[in-house]
Design a protein around this nucleic acid. Sequence first.
DNA 1: GGTACTCACTTGCAAAATGCAAGTCTATAA
DNA 2: TTATAGACTTGCATTTTGCAAGTGAGTACC
Lengths: 130, 130
Amino acid sequence: MNNAKPFARSACAIANSLDVLGDKWSLLVVRDLLHGKHTYGELARSPEHIPTNILAERLKRLESAGIISSAPYQERPVRYAYTLTSKGVALGEVLLALVRWGKRHIPGTVAMTQRPAGAEGAASPTRRAR
Amino acid sequence: MNNAKPFARSACAIANSLDVLGDKWSLLVVRDLLHGKHTYGELARSPEHIPTNILAERLKRLESAGIISSAPYQERPVRYAYTLTSKGVALGEVLLALVRWGKRHIPGTVAMTQRPAGAEGAASPTRRAR
DNA sequence: GGTACTCACTTGCAAAATGCAAGTCTATAA
DNA sequence: TTATAGACTTGCATTTTGCAAGTGAGTACC
């Protein structure tokens, strides 16, 4: 028989999404990748200053959840570039909803849509952010 | 001069939203309130079984963030009913984005749109969930 | 009156997650 | 040879979770 529980908490799509994304940092990493950042250093230098051990752990978690993938962009020393999978890119809609809510309901917050100069056509569902 | 930092981490709308909502439970409480639940007991009995101390703490946090409000629905003993403010109702869009993402990318998860029988016209931006 | 039971929380920890600082490893630059 | 940089690791102290049990007010039964 199958005694293994299929889900940690329930079959609810929200609950299971939060099991992966429900913390203060994961979606910020996704935001940065969506904005065209790719390396550990770029992610670490974002204005929120994620602690580096947390960043390393989140990158592993997001990768094992199929949200990002890593590939070496150079050998000697080997360095990895992180990119969003299609599953990760699809989180753009969640981020968009979140940024709309934040801008409208938390005074003073802004959208942070800047991306590295000359990164056109990169993966990003940036519909005009109203 | 004004030396107080205006924001905990940055002015990013996402970062500031996550400072309030970035955990495994807050959005599930909002989900339940959106689904027509109102009392502490109803919230505690949801299928995810939030620990009661966490529930009490989250209700306080969400209230001080202006996302929910509480009002006594009976005296002796005083019992409070929790309801979403307009700021809280607006999170429906975030939840909707999250449930769409979860359903599409986490196999087996479902929407959980059930609400107590006879609760029509209650606050909820439930556009057809495709 | 006494016992049981419910609802809405609190309290007391143990365990896990977070955050800060410093350290490591590989390699290039001066 | 020394310095610098990127990409992580490691070592803790602090904070947050989660489990279980307890509390206080009131109702229901016997």
